[in-house]
Write a protein that binds this DNA or RNA. Structure first.
Length: 548
RNA sequence: UGGGGUGUGGCCAAGUGGUUAAGGCAGCGGGUUUUGAUCCCGCCAUUCGUAGGUUCGAAUCCUACCACCCCAGCCA
């Protein structure tokens, strides 16, 4: 993992510091608690927290909780867990809801200055009067009320004397602005709903446009980073900051959102997958949510490495899944304990083994001795993977086949002797002879074999469940399909069993594993003492499989 | 067709007037290897959306054109 790649935001900040325009960097990550965080949020988290960290500033975690209709405590808790799991500490926890009083007072300020008015048009009328992309809108009949009348009405809104939808507070900018966001945008709406944080204290709630910039100002945010679709909102963001006596002037900078090949990252669609029962929940290992990736066995470092690799620009981009997977592998390669597991067992009898089982001391990681070792047994009856034996091997096959030899990793070289077929003619057993001179670590024979395969000792192996995951969709751009059901991959989850060496048969919820020659695995959170479940996080790269 | 953006190899992405256009992923070739993994080495854009122009010199400046993305929630 090399040094951090640069990007335009970083460059700009470094520049501002160099020119003395900036003494501290304060960013914020402002999720709305209306769903779980996904890989796109991870990009934003890494950017915001990463920048603050790099320039010795701070990054606030702020819940942008302005709309109680869709927000809940479940999401608030999950978001904190996810950010923290990714490895970031927020200097303090903030809530837009904590600024509701200040925001309200500032709304009064706008009203008194003639910069906002209460509109009693229906939502439909407002829409009709907004105009179109090419035609200007029409002024509301309520647009020229006096400040006094507006204030009285706004207080009635606050005091619950008006019904939902009966009125809205609007900024008084221009109904003919070419930027639609400037055509008298709504600032406050009536919602007789209780809020996870403020309870029933308010029945009017500020919109994102009104709340966001002012919250940034209150917190002293220097760089308010958001995605490109908010670019058209920047003039409004700045208009409000200019009209209000705010203590600070934050600057908004936009970057392009992450698009990941083969995944959807809209909360609405992710929610539809959960609600429709297509996945087991927000943390289903196939979900691109942080919770899903965590459960699948991706490491925080791997995800952060990914976010670093993909960069930050203003261009449309679709990241290939391989970049994510290779980032995860890169981290897991050094982090994981390496062990033996056989997914499709084939019985192997070592016919010339006539002693008790032999204990082998096997390191957890050949390149990281500090991880220690464990004992594996070698004996007369073993299991190997069915795919490691071929009766009629294709050209270039160098595992076990009739007349051939192979090394059982960390054990001995074995030579093919015989094969037992069942009634259907399928291989049910392979008989081999082991070469006593070839014990790993003390091989005196000088023999070289082409293939080395993994195995487990039949009597001491334990059976575990294994869940093999594949992409959730059959198309690279599921986001373009309204009917997600039609592009779901029916084989995105394959349930199976595996025989694992004894050391893998106990509950180890935090450990990362590589099943040698198979892939990276992590125990699923549903595992229990008597039923261990391993999730395949990601496969190993497999040149042989590709060539076939 | 209004406004705002973006165009550098298959996918990302540095580069902001001056040697043969960084790097990563993918791919290809080779070496090491008791994981066909890892690791290591090499190859992989005479060209930067297109066409003109300015300049001794342009991906970088100018002009025109083309393509794509975002905006008409009392969502964020």
């Amino acid at each position: 993992m090399s040094e951090k790649p640069t990007n335009f935001i970083r460059t700009k900040i470094a520049d501002q510091i160099k020119q003395g325009q900036l003494t501290e960097v304060v960013t914020r990550f402002p999720p709305e608690p209306n769903g779980y965080l996904h890989v796109g949020h991870a990009k934003s988290i890494c950017l915001n927290f990463g920048l603050a960290e790099e320039f010795g500033g701070r990054c606030h975690l702020r819940f942008d909780d302005t709309n109680p209709e869709k927000e809940s405590q479940e999401y608030i808790d999950a978001i904190q867990a996810d950010v923290s799991w990714l490895g970031f500490d927020w200097s303090a926890l903030y809530h837009t809801a904590d600024y509701f009083q200040q925001l309200f007072d500032w709304a009064l300020h706008l009203i008194r200055n003639g910069d906002a008015y209460v509109d009693e048009q229906s939502a439909e009328a407002m829409r009709a009067n907004r105009g179109t992309l090419t035609e200007p809108g029409v002024d509301s009949p309520y647009r020229d009320r006096s400040p006094e009348e507006n204030e009285a009405l706004f207080l009635k809104m606050r005091d619950g004397e008006l019904l939902v939808g009966a009125a809205v507070l609007r900024a008084k900018i221009s109904m003919s602005a070419p930027n639609l966001n400037l055509r008298d945008p709504a600032l406050y709406r009536i919602r007789h709903l209780s809020h996870p944080r403020t309870g029933d204290q308010w029945c009017i709630y500020p919109t994102y446009d009104y709340a966001h910039g002012q919250s940034d100002a209150i917190e002293g945010i220097t760089h308010s980073l958001c995605t490109l679709e908010f670019e058209d909102h920047r003039p409004l963001y700045e208009w409000l900051l200019k009209k209000l006596p705010v203590p600070h002037r934050p600057k908004q900078t936009e970057f392009s959102r992450l698009e990941l090949e083969g995944t959807v990252t809209s909360k609405r669609k992710l929610n539809a997958l959960v609600e429709g029962g297509y996945v087991s929940g927000w943390d289903d290992p196939r979900m691109p949510t942080i919770a899903g990736m965590r459960r699948r066995g991706y490491s925080p470092e791997g995800i952060r490495f990914f976010c670093e690799r993909i960069g930050v620009t203003r261009k449309l981009n679709t990241i290939e899944l391989q970049i994510l997977e290779s980032s995860i592998r890169d981290d897991l390669e050094r982090r994981a304990h390496k062990a033996m597991a056989v997914l499709n067992p084939l019985k192997v009898v070592v016919t010339n083994w006539d002693q008790v089982s032999l204990g082998l001391d096997v390191p957890w990681h050949p390149k990281r001795p500090e991880l220690g070792s464990r004992t594996m047994l070698f004996g007369r009856e073993l299991s190997i993977d069915r795919s490691d034996f071929e009766l009629n091997p294709p050209e270039g096959f160098f595992r076990l086949s009739p007349g051939g030899s192979v090394r059982l990793k960390y054990g001995f070289i074995v030579d093919f002797e015989d094969v037992v077929l069942d009634a259907q003619g399928l291989v049910s057993e392979v008989h081999v002879r082991y070469d006593p001179e070839t014990r790993s670590g003390r091989d005196q024979s000088g023999r070289k074999v082409k293939g080395t395969i993994h195995w487990v000792h039949a009597a001491s192996a334990r059976e575990v469940d294994v869940r093999l995951y594949d992409r959730l969709f059959t198309v690279p751009d599921p986001g373009n399909y309204e009917d997600l059901a039609s592009v779901m991959n029916s084989e995105s989850l394959i349930n199976g069993q595996a025989l694992v060496e004894p050391a893998l048969g106990t509950l180890m919820p935090d450990a990362y594993f590589q099943f040698e020659r198979v892939g990276f695995f992590k125990q699923d959170s549903e595992s229990s003492d008597d039923r261990i479940i391993y999730n395949r996080s990601v496969t190993l790269k497999h040149a042989w499989a590709k060539k076939k």
